[in-house]
Structures are given as structure tokens and as C-alpha cells.
Simulated scan of single mutants.
Amino acid sequence: MTDWIAIGRDGADISAHAMRGASLIKSTRAPDEAGALAALAFEAAQQVRIGDGAPDPLPAPVLPGAAGAALPGLVQKAPPDVIAARVRLWIAGLLARQPGWDGVVCALEDGINHWVQISAGEAVSAQSFLTPRLVSALGGTMPPAPDAIADSLSRPERLAAHLRAAEVSNRPDAISGHLIGVELAAARPYWLGQQVALIAPDGAAPGLDLALGDQGVPVELHSRESLLPEGLGALARAFGLNG
């Protein structure tokens, strides 16, 4: 089995993963690369840099078909978007768990919700939203108010008025609900008539899962943490590091 290390930025920190073929041995996280590697204490001649290199333009395979020294992110020209390489790994983990899966992934990544259309192992298109950042900036709370989600999903043009009413009424849960409702209204082309996989921290996507369920959308929840080992294993197979 090939010993190798996957390393790259993970939010504000650096994450390092000790791999033996397609199996994850250990993961560490530190403010800098030296600290992450020291904590990993794993000897390997080969590293794969997660997030290095020029992003692959959409549409693109979820994982490259040829070995490389890095796994870059994804980029889209219109509408302009950038998707981090670690999101790519989560999606690869989903496809490893459910081969042949087609549909739409909504991946929650540090203040950004990425909606990505997946077909035949490719990321076809994407639309991302800053909804979690707006919820935080405006003092919204979870779980979001279902009535607010419904109001702004059906009347997204009234968002500013809805937010003011929630503020005056001292309803922070309604602030969150209105913002989620507007996101769902804008993302309707992605989820309407599709199956949706929500990839979220600890598998929790407050409001989004229930709101999509209320629209009759088949939704499955996955934790980012559980998909990462499977994504790294898929990367090993794609890069020929599993032998």
C-alpha cells in the first residue's frame, strides 16, 4: 500500500491526513502546515496538496481522472463562482458511497451554501449563497421559523420588508427563516424535480432540510465528517495511490 499525505487549507486552519492507500489513518488540524504535519507524525514520500493549482472550470469531473500533485478547486464563469477543493472531496465521498448518484448537492461550507448539479460523475454547474453569513450578521437564530421560510419562498421580492418586520417583532428565528426562504426561491432551478443531498457539519442543516421536504423534494442528509474519508479514498483510487 502507498503511504501518502493529503494536506490543505481547512477554513482558517490547515488539515493534514495520513493515508495508507485508500484508507485514512489519522487526521490533524493546526494553524499552520508545520504544526499539522508535526501532529500527524506520519512518514510518507508523497503529498497531495488539497486546494493548490488553478481551479478546474465547470463542467468538470468531480475528481480528475489522472494522477497529480494537487487537487484544485472548481471555478465557474457565469454566474461567477469558486468551490473549494475540500467541497469537491465531500462530493467525491458521496459518489463513492452511492455510485451512480445523480442530483443536486447542497454543501454547507463555512458561511457559504454551494448548490452543485451532479450528473454522470461530473459537477455540471453551481450556484452559491452567502445565507449563513447574512444570518449571522443580522442576528438570526436557529432553528428558523417555518412561517418565515414559507413567506419569503413565495414572495422573495419582499425580503427587506420581511427582515424589518422580524427585527421590530424581535423574532431572530424569522430573520433566519426569511433568508433561507429567499435562498430556496433563487435556487429553485436546482432543487425542483431533483433529489437533493445536503452535506453539512455533523449532518445538520437547520431549516433547509425541512423546507425542501415541505416542497416535496427528496432530501438526504450527510455529514461532512463522514464523507471526508470516503472522498480521500476516492482520490487515492483516482490518483493510483491505492496500490
Rank of each mutant, 00 (worst) to 15 (best):
W115E: 01
Q127R: 15
V104M: 08
Q117N: 08
V75M: 12
D81F: 07
L134P: 12
V104Y: 06
R88K: 14
E109H: 00
W90M: 08
V104R: 01
L74E: 02
G103W: 05
G100K: 03
W115T: 00
A126W: 03
R97C: 14
E109R: 04
W101C: 01
P99R: 00
A126Q: 06
V105N: 03
A123G: 06
T131R: 06
P64M: 07
I112W: 02
W90Q: 02
A92N: 03
V82P: 07
Q76L: 08
R97D: 15
G68R: 06
R133H: 14
P132M: 07
C106K: 04
C106A: 15
A69T: 14
C106H: 06
K77P: 01
A84V: 10
V116Y: 04
A66T: 12
G65L: 01
A67I: 07
A123K: 04
A66Q: 14
A78W: 13
R133W: 12
G103M: 04
Q98R: 13
L89F: 15
V124P: 11
A66M: 09
N113H: 06
L95K: 08
A78T: 13
D81S: 11
G65P: 04
D81I: 02
V124E: 08
Q76K: 12
A69L: 12
A70Q: 03
A96L: 07
P80V: 07
F129M: 10
P80L: 04
A84I: 04
S136K: 14
P72Y: 05
Q98K: 11
A67G: 15
R97T: 15
V105D: 10
L74D: 05
S125M: 13
V116A: 01
V124A: 08
D110F: 00
